[in-house]
Simulated assay, not measured.
Amino acid sequence: MRTHTEPGREPRMSQEEFRSLYRRLREQAGDVSHSRGTLDTITPATVRAAAGEVRSGRTVTLAAPVETRPGPDNPEPAGHRITSPPEAQGGTSGLHFATDRFSMNIHGDADSHLDALCHIAYDGTLHGGIPAATVTAAGATALSVEVAHDGIVGRGVLLDIPRLRGVPWLEPGDHVTAAETAQHVRVGQGDLLFVRVGHRRRRSESGPWDAAHARAGLHPSAMEFLAERRVAVLGGDGNNDTASAATGSTASPAWYAARPTRR
Rank of each mutant, 00 (worst) to 15 (best):
V157C: 04
A116I: 03
V145A: 14
T92S: 10
M104F: 10
S93L: 06
P86L: 06
Y122P: 00
G124Q: 05
H107T: 03
D160N: 03
V167K: 07
S93F: 03
D109V: 03
A138P: 04
L170M: 13
S112W: 06
A121G: 14
A121E: 15
V145H: 13
T141P: 11
S112F: 09
A148G: 08
L95Y: 02
V167D: 02
R165S: 03
L164G: 04
A140Y: 02
L159Q: 02
C118L: 06
A88Q: 10
E146Q: 04
V167L: 14
L95N: 08
F97D: 04
H149T: 12
C118T: 13
D150E: 11
P85T: 04
A138K: 09
G108A: 13
G128K: 06
F97W: 03
H149W: 03
D111N: 15
T136Y: 04
G139H: 07
C118R: 00
A98D: 11
V135F: 04
I106F: 14
H96G: 05
G129H: 08
T141W: 07
G156M: 08
H119D: 06
R155Y: 03
H107F: 13
L126M: 10
I152T: 12
P168A: 05
E171K: 09
G94I: 05
I130A: 11
G129S: 01
G128F: 05
A142T: 09
T136P: 06
A98Q: 12
E87I: 03
H119R: 12
A88S: 14
A142H: 15
E171L: 05
V153D: 10
F102W: 03
A116C: 08
G139D: 02
G139T: 03
G154W: 02
H113E: 11
A140K: 07
T99H: 14
G154I: 05
E171Q: 08
G108S: 12
G151C: 11
G94V: 01
T92K: 10
G154S: 13
P85L: 00
V145N: 11
F102A: 01
T134Y: 03
I120M: 15
T134W: 00
M104R: 15
G128E: 10
L159F: 09
A132F: 13
S103K: 11
R101Y: 00
F97E: 11
L170F: 09
L164T: 07
A132G: 13
H127T: 07
I130Y: 06
R155H: 04
H119Y: 12
W169Q: 05
A148Q: 10
G129P: 00
E87H: 08
M104Y: 08
P131M: 01
G94K: 00
T92M: 12
I152M: 05
E146D: 12
G151A: 06
A142P: 00
A138G: 07
L143P: 00
D111A: 10
R165L: 15
L164W: 11
G128I: 15
H107I: 09
